[in-house]
């Protein structure tokens, strides 16, 4: 049985993720969905555009999934990240963990999203009314 679903996608499908996470051995499913917020640095955000170095991003996500599976008893695990243009409210990243008990599910989910933000080669450009910036690019 396939236990991990790791993909770079055009659109995040919450139903697909939830269906994948279902397992008779799981007593808890933790889902984190990152969405486009309408403001950043005090400015109104119109949209975000995401770009990925897909082969490497998938490799890095698989490493994080393997690290999580070593640390916590995980039944199923999902990591999805969207690329392309995303509007306010749309989902851009989804982390899902199914485990026998909720503690492991919560902790592993938190670990996976925190680490994804540090190492996975995906870039976000924020578009405001008057300009746009690549997030984190400059000190």
């Amino acid at each position: 049985m396939e236990r991990m679903l790791i993909k770079i996608v055009e659109d995040i499908d919450l139903q697909e993720a939830y269906q994948f996470l279902l397992s008779p051995k799981a007593g808890g499913i933790d889902l984190f969905v990152g969405t486009v917020r309408d403001h950043a640095q005090g400015k109104e955000v119109v949209k975000l555009v995401f770009e990925a170095y897909a082969p490497m991003a998938l490799k890095e996500m698989e490493k994080l999934a393997a690290a999580a599976q070593q640390q916590w008893p995980i039944e199923k695990l999902v990591m999805l990240h969207a690329v392309g243009e995303k509007l306010v409210g749309e989902p851009v990243v989804l982390i899902g963990v199914a485990s026998a008990h909720r503690d492991a599910a919560f902790t592993a989910c938190r670990f996976l999203i925190d680490e994804l933000k540090k190492t996975v080669p995906i870039w976000k450009k924020e578009f405001y009314q008057d300009n746009s910036v690549w997030v984190n690019a400059h000190p």
Partner: peptide, 26 residues
């Protein structure tokens, strides 16, 4: 070859080399 590389790592022909600016996924 889609792995983070150290500054002292030697480059060889045929490898896939990419620049990775500060990441901002999620």
């Amino acid at each position: 070859d889609s792995e983070y590389a150290h500054d002292h790592q030697t480059l060889s022909p045929g490898q896939e080399v990419a620049l990775i600016p500060p990441v901002s996924g999620g």
